[in-house]
Write a protein that binds this DNA or RNA. Structure first.
Lengths: 369, 369
DNA sequence: CTGAAAGCGCTTACAG
DNA sequence: CTGAAAGCGCTTACAG
């Protein structure tokens, strides 16, 4: 493969000039630039990324830390990130963060310190204090997305508002007995490290639940009390399925279920179908995410636009590492709140035998910004 | 951050010795190795990946080319690959290959030639002759997975056998009118390049269809003819949904549908539900993949173990680039056929009013190897 | 087993 | 605007 020297010789200039002409850094005359480009094209020259990185300190590579890469949500966010990085010439290196302590230590103490990335995007993982410190010690920009750590200049949707919106939708439909299927706070976090997940207030499921509680509490203050119950369940189809079966076995099952994710909502729907409970006639169901197959299930959900989230995170990290953004006009605010929107479909409806009060105020979807 | 020199000074040896002691390449005495390790630990030294790569020519990084990274199948394969690379200390760089010609050219002519990867895994993409040539010119090992190009030493499941197995399952159940929803061959391929997809015989959907035709044809030879029809549809939930609606509108709809993917099968199920066609009483449905949610839909499918496919591909590329495998005993045969298995669930059953012939031979699931 | 030294292929002050 | 030269931080024959 042709090297810088080859191009320099062919163009009759120094290697310094070739480097400047091709990279656009530093001045070169229009004429030499042309000549150099022609020579480079001719020889099929492409600069070695590793040599370039070593000399410049720029890796032109962004690391993305993801838990569970086989979940639709993360894959979609990843797609959004990649869509922004590729056109800028940045590579995307994927780091899967599991619950295995040895694997985590390896990632934070070795892999990440090899200096292969200019910046990092961290997706929805709970980090211990040590891990956050290790990230900081890297001395590279880090953008968190859905990460329960304020330190990471995190992009995030207002999960409390999401929880409130989903619950309010059910209340507005006339439901007076609503269950929320979510995940309890895991004190030690998946990392098992001291202080992992530190402040429960930052945890996504916890915040969605807080929104639920807030909406329920507001109905009491307003004088038309709604019965709200929280039910702990795994953040999976099966977990929600199990919890729903138990719920439907109770003497007085709720008339509506707010599942903390669309996949959980699928589990709810499956359980209802198996028990012969009609949706939405006997049970309304709402999820969160805007999952791929939500339309297929005719599932009402709070869409949080994961692909757009990925794009935002990609732009944010590019800005942080000093790459020019595709559109230089727009500044990326890495602390801004991300949009979400209620998508009404067929799994939510007024409860059976319910008639709309004449003067009932309707809550509209939250603003998308 | 500490450098090699720092460690050498602390341990009282040369940088060459530090490099050898830490990497394990070349001889060092037990004693100095200990001393060097202690010094390295003390200083928190981690070798710079870019300097190491430049000097050694080893990037310890594998590139993975994927289409559509937000599809469950690819995300799962990716997870399998990552599971094998990480423990060996290899990074995984993700390249999303879209249909955009400019983006493709950029990838093959520039990005990949920057020398950042030791080897490549190519997942289920159709490549033009030029693209295959560009890959070969890289001079690095390439492992194809589900790639319709024999050149790439591809791992693949026997898709013809998959098509045959799915069809045979329906025939064995007693169906005599079966439709196969698949994708027609796109002559120019997504790359739009000359010769893209070259030989249709290598295309996955085409091979599944060939298996379908073969199984149908065999029934004619055997004297109990089954009516088989191929219906072209997009490889998506919606595409299959549309095709199924059309099919169910016909005067004589089939009693069974073999969808070329599980996601397509979901579309079939949705259409059936909407039209009030009972599954499996009035319509049997089988898919292919072993999708995440197949259990939820109670969908009969041909599982092709995508996670295991990823692991195989990961092992194959590691072997090709000369990394020691986790288990040195096992040799990875990159040309071997991958396993698949029929998973019987509730969406397939004998057709209505059908009674099993007394002496009917039953076909069993194909061997998983 | 260990060290001195060249070299991997670029980038970038520093002069001119 | 352009060139000579140092340097990025490792690895690896080559001697000893």
């Amino acid at each position: 493969m042709a090297s810088l020297d080859d191009v320099a010789r062919a163009a009759g200039v120094s290697t310094a000039t070739v480097s400047r002409a091709l990279s656009g850094r530093g001045r070169t005359s229009e004429a030499t630039r042309e000549r150099v480009r022609a020579a480079a094209d001719e020889l099929g020259y492409v600069a070695s990324a590793t040599a370039s990185s070593l000399a410049s300190g720029r890796a032109e590579n962004i690391g993305v830390i993801v838990p569970l890469m086989d979940r639709w949500f993360f894959a979609t966010v990843l797609d959004g990130i990649a869509a922004r990085l590729a056109p800028r010439g940045y590579d995307l290196t994927l780091y899967n963060l599991t619950d295995d302590p040895a694997q985590r230590r390896r990632l934070f103490e070795t892999t990440l310190r090899r200096g292969r990335v200019d910046g990092l995007i961290v997706l929805s993982v709970r980090l211990s204090d040590d891990e956050v410190a290790a990230l900081a010690a890297l001395g590279r920009p880090v953008v968190g997305l859905g990460v329960p750590r304020g330190e990471l200049g995190a992009l995030r949707v207002d999960d409390t508002a999401v929880g409130r919106a989903a619950t309010q939708h059910l209340i507005d439909l006339g439901h007076r007995d609503i269950a929320h299927l979510g995940q309890g706070f895991a004190p030690s976090g998946p990392g098992g490290g001291v202080g992992a997940g530190a402040d429960p207030a930052y945890d996504i499921p916890t915040r969605r639940r807080a929104g639920f509680e807030t909406a329920i509490a507001a109905t009491r203050l307003a004088g038309l009390p709604v019965n709200g119950r929280f039910v702990e369940a795994d953040f999976t189809v099966d977990g929600a399925h199990r919890a729903t079966v138990a719920l439907l076995n109770e003497p007085h099952p709720p008339t509506a279920i707010f599942a903390a994710s669309d996949e959980m909502a699928y589990g709810v729907l499956a359980a209802a179908r198996e028990r012969g409970v009609a949706v939405p006639a006997d049970l309304s169901v709402i999820g969160v995410d805007g999952h791929d197959l939500a339309g297929l299930f005719d599932l009402t959900t709070i869409d949080q636009f994961p692909h757009a989230q990925g794009e935002r995170a990609g732009d944010a990290i590019l800005a942080a590492v000093g790459a020019e953004l595709p559109n230089p006009d727009e500044t990326v605010d890495a602390s801004a709140s991300l949009p979400f929107a209620l998508v009404r479909r067929g799994t939510t409806a007024p409860p059976r035998d319910w008639t709309e009060p004449s003067s009932r105020p309707r809550t509209t979807a939250p603003p998308r910004g």
